[in-house]
């Protein structure tokens, strides 16, 4: 569904992302992992059209969308959420979701109906009339997801929707994501919470210092020496192995 090829971006002398390539098949949940500063979010901003890549291409359902404006890309059915949640603080939860719903429902009545429906599906039925600013962090993360879903987008790029949540909240949102996927959506998610990645993602890519260093099932990835080194430092894989043998 989404094909990213050789995406590169430099800020000044720093190569934030270099030659990143990844594929997201329709109906799958794909993880994008990597330590802090690896370039994951930069990757997302380029895919979603917020920054232009220096080189490389992004194709959505075979159509080249490299460098298109975010609202064009959203119209084509791909949407991103933000790592640092960005609610419309002055609006109610329902109105927040309705902004997303307006994309394909131009009438207020329809947009509001879609917003309520999406809100209820994500378990926010009782919060609809609350101001978004009154939500907890878990509520705001859920709101990001609800708004994105209300646009009717089929491919959702989730940027750390589980960061900062407690385990029960993570379990809830994992269930929600799985349910949304089963309704015919596709996910590409940046995630640090390994519990979530392991239980959700079929495959994952690992980015380190702007370079894709590994790709595979989450189970394989945690055993991959390159991945272990990326997270735990040079020589860590070897030390672990020695510990195992000892």
């Amino acid at each position: 569904m989404l094909e990213v090829e050789n995406l590169s971006k430099s800020f000044g002398g720093l190569k934030a992302v270099s030659n990143a390539t990844l594929q997201v098949p329709e109906g799958s949940i794909v993880g994008l992992l990597g330590p802090n500063g690896a370039g994951k979010t930069t990757c997302f901003t380029m895919i979603a059209g917020f920054t232009k890549p220096d080189s490389g291409s992004v194709r959505l359902r075979g159509k080249d969308i490299t460098g298109l404006a975010p609202h064009h890309i959203c119209n084509l059915g791909m949407i991103r959420t933000f790592q640092i949640v960005q609610p419309f603080a002055g609006l109610t939860v329902e109105e927040n979701i309705a902004v997303g719903a307006y994309l394909h429902h131009h009438e207020r009545k329809e947009a509001m109906a879609v917003a309520r429906d999406v809100g209820k599906r994500l378990g926010m039925g009782t919060l609809l009339d609350r101001p978004a600013s009154a939500l907890t962090i878990a509520g705001r993360k859920r709101l990001e997801l609800a708004r994105a879903l209300a646009t009717g987008a089929k491919l959702l790029l989730l940027d750390e929707v589980m960061a900062g949540l407690i385990p029960t909240e993570i379990n809830e949102i994992v269930g929600i994501i799985r349910q949304i996927r089963d309704e015919g959506h596709t996910f590409l998610m940046i995630e640090h919470v390994m519990q979530a990645v392991m239980s959700l993602a079929e495959t994952a890519y690992v980015l380190n210092q702007g370079v894709m260093i590994a790709h595979g099932t989450p189970r394989d990835l945690v055993r991959d020496p390159a991945v272990v080194e990326a997270y735990l430092g040079h020589g860590a894989a070897q030390r672990l192995q020695e510990d195992d043998h000892a």
Partner: peptide, 17 residues
Amino acid sequence: AYLVAVRENEDAARALG
């Protein structure tokens, strides 16, 4: 609604199409 969305958070508005 879009105008208010722009007021409240322009980046989020852009992301929502």
